[in-house]
Amino acid sequence: MTASHARPEILRYTAFSADPAGGNPAGVVLDAAGLSDEEQLAIAAELGYSESAFLTAPPEGLGGEPGRAFTVRYFSPKAEVAFCGHATIATAIAFAERHGAGELLFSTQAGQVPVTVTQSADGTLRATLTSVEPAVLDAEEKVVAEALEALGWSAADLDPAFPPRIGFAGNRHLVLAAATRARLADLDYDFERLLALMTALDFTTVQLVWRESETVFHVRDPFPVGGVVEDPATGAAAAAFGAYARELGLVPEESVLTLHQGADMGRPGELRVELRAGDARVRVGGTGARIPEATA
């Protein structure tokens, strides 16, 4: 940090859980004005979370409520990323704790992302982001085969009702569905091999899913491109999965899905995915909590 400006307040929040020990932790800097790219990256590396979010003034003409529209940039400890769902939720919760619930508008490298924060009667805050326009793309057989080899899965481990696809809602995610909960629970993959595949094809995570019931799913997200084995709760992947499930007719066009993530790695979280008829964009919401400094 240069001597020309003071170090900003650096917050630590988890997303998709009201328990600081659950969900996915993120760094949040609500006023990153004056921070260089290098300083933002250094803060993200110091925190060591999969992503940290940095707010600055909005671009001209963004719109939104005065004082509630911002440019948001996301950094992993290694590099800047275009979009991060859990850091968006964490940032919205952190902002609302200081400035109240309501509407926010974030300008990200992936596009404009509106966020609504509501407060329940018991004071619990819940943030819901609206994704950029999603897309669902075919996954080549050789790509799926290589992913299965890296994961140590066989074709028989897949649920035939959920064909492999690439989902996009700000980032690209390869969607693979496990036939059993036991298969999903047993995650032990070739880190370097999966990293190479994902890097070559610009995949942010592999979205592994298992269907418990019509609208309840369990998910896991290998994240070697972020330098970690697994992401605890992945908002962008949840949005991509919602688009995937709707496009393939696996859920009704208008649905509310519950995704459970993180339990297998000791950080349980819950993501709410809302699909609306006539609206391609996907809404992903959840709670959040500040992480005490002593346990950060």
Score class of each variant (00 low, 15 high):
residue 226 G to E: 00
residue 107 S to P: 13
residue 200 A to D: 02
residue 58 P to M: 10
residue 263 A to G: 13
residue 27 G to Q: 01
residue 55 L to T: 02
residue 45 A to L: 15
residue 238 A to K: 00
residue 172 R to A: 06
residue 155 A to I: 14
residue 49 Y to F: 05
residue 69 A to E: 11
residue 129 L to E: 13
residue 26 A to S: 12
residue 53 A to P: 09
residue 290 R to M: 14
residue 197 L to P: 07
residue 205 T to H: 04
residue 43 I to E: 05
residue 99 H to S: 09
residue 122 D to Y: 01
residue 247 E to I: 06
residue 228 V to Y: 02
residue 34 G to H: 06
residue 56 T to H: 03
residue 113 V to Q: 04
residue 194 L to I: 02
residue 125 L to C: 03
residue 104 L to C: 08
residue 36 S to N: 05
residue 28 V to C: 12
residue 156 A to E: 14
residue 294 A to E: 12
residue 228 V to G: 08
residue 6 A to C: 15
residue 288 G to M: 10
residue 243 A to M: 05
residue 133 E to W: 10
residue 177 A to G: 10
residue 261 Q to M: 07
residue 20 P to L: 02
residue 58 P to Y: 08
residue 254 E to Q: 12
residue 37 D to N: 11
residue 47 L to A: 09
residue 250 L to F: 04
residue 275 L to Q: 01
residue 61 G to V: 10
residue 211 R to S: 15
residue 265 M to S: 15
residue 135 A to K: 07
residue 190 D to T: 08
residue 27 G to W: 00
residue 88 T to P: 02
residue 120 S to D: 09
residue 208 L to E: 05
residue 65 E to T: 12
residue 41 L to E: 07
residue 289 A to S: 11
residue 157 D to F: 04
residue 59 P to K: 07
residue 149 E to F: 05
residue 187 L to R: 01
residue 75 F to T: 04
residue 67 G to H: 02
residue 54 F to R: 00
residue 121 A to Y: 03
residue 102 G to C: 08
residue 188 D to K: 11
residue 20 P to V: 04
residue 263 A to H: 10
residue 69 A to D: 06
residue 160 P to H: 04
residue 286 G to Q: 06
residue 266 G to K: 05
residue 160 P to F: 03
